[in-house]
Design a protein around this nucleic acid. Structure first.
Lengths: 206, 206, 206, 206
DNA sequence: TATGAATGAGGCTTCATTCAT
DNA sequence: TATGAATGAAGCCTCATTCAT
């Protein structure tokens, strides 16, 4: 879907994202994932050394999707409200397009008081966390600037940031694709959420 | 916390909520829960017939907390914006006060394509879903009314509803209690989120 | 059924026999038995110190039923064929009347390579075995005598004995009571099996 | 014993039959079975998805043994008495040769009011029951024919059938192999039981 | 006598992982 | 690359039994 010619790794990744999404990453077994693409466990273990690394790959790809999407907006010079609106719109659109990946990510907001992990996997997780923070900071900057600016309401900036991000990720919790007009529907939702996000920060819409 | 003298069942429920919150309901084992209150597995199974039923009890109690909290506001006659603000504030405050329960709930937005469930557990889940919907409808009514009213922006009402609810539940993802001034902090957050929720619906905040 | 005023012990015994019969003595739990008479485990433990002792009581009662029934025929002086016929008829009738008990007994033909047993329970089992052997010997005597006698076919006496006993117990495997005419049906079966038993030993019937 | 080179599955099956026979299928644990062939539980679960399915496989094989053995006699045209004698002899011989399997079968005459069974296992059980009935019908036909014929005594045919079958299965309850002359002993028993079975039906034994 | 709470041992089952092929 | 067999650890659950009331 995202790759024109899905490589074996991408096929596995997509399958994993779907299984993790549907069953939860703890419940979905390697066998479930393998079965969903008509393969056996062995094939998966040839590409990913462990279930944890596969999960990390899914989460990493989720961040990559959004980071890539925002790349074009990063250098743009605009007023905070305009810039944030563009970022918000882009973010929502990306999330909806690659929903399974982001659903998996949202399962993992809990502090991973992981029961046991290898050194290698802790490194993967640290990298994900690092990129996630990088991404978050793109929003933090523009929001902080807008608050300082007077463009946004003078509220606690941390709460503002997190609330906006949750709002923009919320399709993860309730989005279901319509029978027809998928693309149009996505854009409508992205627009509405971008509007609501800006409004929640005190920007007068319309 | 909620019970002055926690009964055995409530003690187990609190422990379960905490373990499920920290480790995820799939990873946390009955032994983890038992150990956290110095009990044996047997004691837990004496009160709850299965892990699934324990999880359901936690989720049900979460809904009960919010439903009880809103009970006082149900009859109130106010303009949609005022009424929603009261509801929003109350909701956030309740969620923060009983955070572990709501963290568990939010883990379960995934459609429970559960691997296998007994008839009995499906019934429990249906009851939870029923009460959750009842609760959701309290918000739906006032939001729909406000949109019709012109008090709220004329946007897709379903998206508006779900977005507001996610916003009001967002502390689940990021709240950590401060060292001091806990109560004051809670109220500040509840106020800010209520403000943001109303603003996101297009209500001019003063 | 057997007791005009079922004492508490007898009520438990009957319930146990039924549960053991239906579920198997290993699968039926004390709770199952208690529940089937609307009681709790405690009541059963007041009358029987362990599940094993309860099972033994059921098996012992089964032997007692048949032993009591044959008591009247013990002293009788008749030709082997006639005596055996009377014994056979009486045995079958008794078995059908107290079927659950005998079904339980037949579950335990396997050498009880019991996984673990207390001294006390081994004693109970020894007593049962003792009385069972006593009962078996009543048949052995008359069959041996008949073989020596020429009344019965000159075949291996041990095989003859065991085969006849299995034959006479066979209702345990297939008997189901008719809608009407229960008593008459029982007698018909007892007669037919007695006939077949004698015939199998070479006695010309009719 | 039956397979010259026992496959992994057959080895497990034989081990299961022995354990189920000795301890009872409810008491014998998967660990018991695994241990008896120096394997791990995992190995068994790799080949059989559950204990129930393993038990079903044992029972199914038991029926297969007897069904295969009688295959040669099925087309034979003989008078009922002669045909039944051949069938009886063959049956007894087969049962003694594959005793553990048949001991397991005879433990399960109880209506499996099993506590809980999966759809899959109910299907297995239905198949077993189906083949068992097929086998039983081979005997039913010849017995019915003999009764109609006048070759066998004019008694209730259902009772006659079941009694004969129990008689022919009776070694399951009492057979123990002799120190020497095993094969000869088997044949002697098969002959005696065949004789007794025919006699029990009213056939004059020479 | 009887109950309800609690224990602890043991059984079934799942599953990530490894390995020989 | 991929498969199928096998392992071992861990989790859920049952149940005989004990005990305080």
């Amino acid at each position: 879907m995202q790759e024109t010619i899905p490589s074996s790794k991408t096929q596995i990744l997509d399958a994993a994202a779907n299984c993790f999404m549907n069953l939860g990453s703890d419940v979905a077994s390697i066998d479930d994932i393998a079965r969903s693409i008509g393969a056996t466990k062995g094939r998966i273990y040839h590409h990913y050394p462990s279930k944890g690394s596969l999960l990390s790959a899914v989460r990493m790809r989720a961040v990559a999707f959004t980071l890539d999407a925002l790349a074009t907006t990063v250098g743009v010079h605009k007023a905070p409200a305009d810039k944030l609106r563009l970022m918000a719109y882009t973010h929502v659109l990306t999330v909806i397009k690659t929903l399974p990946y982001h659903k998996v990510v949202l399962q993992h907001y809990r502090e991973n008081v992981a029961k046991s992990t290898t050194e290698y996997e802790r490194k993967l997780i640290a990298e994900i966390e690092d990129r996630r923070r990088t991404y978050e900071n793109l929003f933090r900057e523009v929001i902080d600037q807008g608050i300082k600016n007077g463009a946004f309401a003078d509220r606690d900036s941390s709460v503002s940031l997190h609330s906006v991000l949750i709002l923009l990720n919320s399709p993860v919790f309730w989005y279901t694709p319509p029978k027809t007009g998928v693309e149009q529907n996505r854009q409508a939702i992205a627009n509405q959420l971008a509007d609501m996000a800006l409004a929640s920060l005190g920007v007068e819409t319309i």
